[in-house]
Amino acid sequence: MSYLSKVRAIVWKDVRAELRTKDILSSMLVFAGLTVLIFQFAFDLRASVIQLVLPGVLWIAITFAGVLGLNRSFVLEQDRGSMEGLLMAPMDRSAIYFGKLIGNLLFIFAVELVLLPLMTVLYNMSLLSPSILLVVFLGTIGYAAVGTLFAALSINTRAREVMLPILLFPVMIPVFVAGVQATARLLDGESLAEIARWVQLLLAYDGIFIAAAMILFDYVVEE
């Protein structure tokens, strides 16, 4: 499929450039780590059992670090004017969206791959169960699906990077609520079947917004 090979080419290009500079990955990782550290101090005195707020800390770290990565994905294209090159290419423009989405997902997953074991060790709680990984996986997809669309949108505004979290956070609240709740309940020992409603919500969110973004992306990049 030529469409898929073009999506793959865009992912390859972004990953290749990122592995060379590590600008995005390093800033996301450091930011995620800092978030955990800050929350340690924020909750230390009041929350008698820090583990109770852990799911929230995890998802805040993912969300905040994610915004950095999402922003860079299009800011870099815009600053170098290279977006035109992508728009000129003989392909449906949704290929740009999916290429960027997959690239963003890879970067956020990479951060989560460090964050989850780190928090597991720091707080002596197992965040590495398959069920939690599934919830994190589904939540990240929904977050990045909307985030990639809005990142493309916010580079066309005056405030640029500042605009993305303002646009993104109110719309991604279902992901955040579902992610935190499902993670917390799984940590409490509930089974995947018991949190099925949250998983269904995440699946619905992912499906709806990937479809919506695929249709709307064309309108974002046209001039």
């Binding site: 909307v146 669309l149 809005f150 949108l153 066309n156 505004t157 646009l167 109110p170 719309v171 991604m172 609240i173 279902p174 919500l201 619905a204 969110y205 709806i208 917004f209 919506a212 973004a213 709307l216 309108y219 974002v220």
Partner: peptide, 15 residues
């Protein structure tokens, strides 16, 4: 761009 956000934002309300 506002139209795009208006649509996505509204879809998010039921969710």
């Amino acid at each position: 761009l506002a139209s795009i956000y208006g649509i996505v934002g509204f879809i998010s309300v039921p969710l």
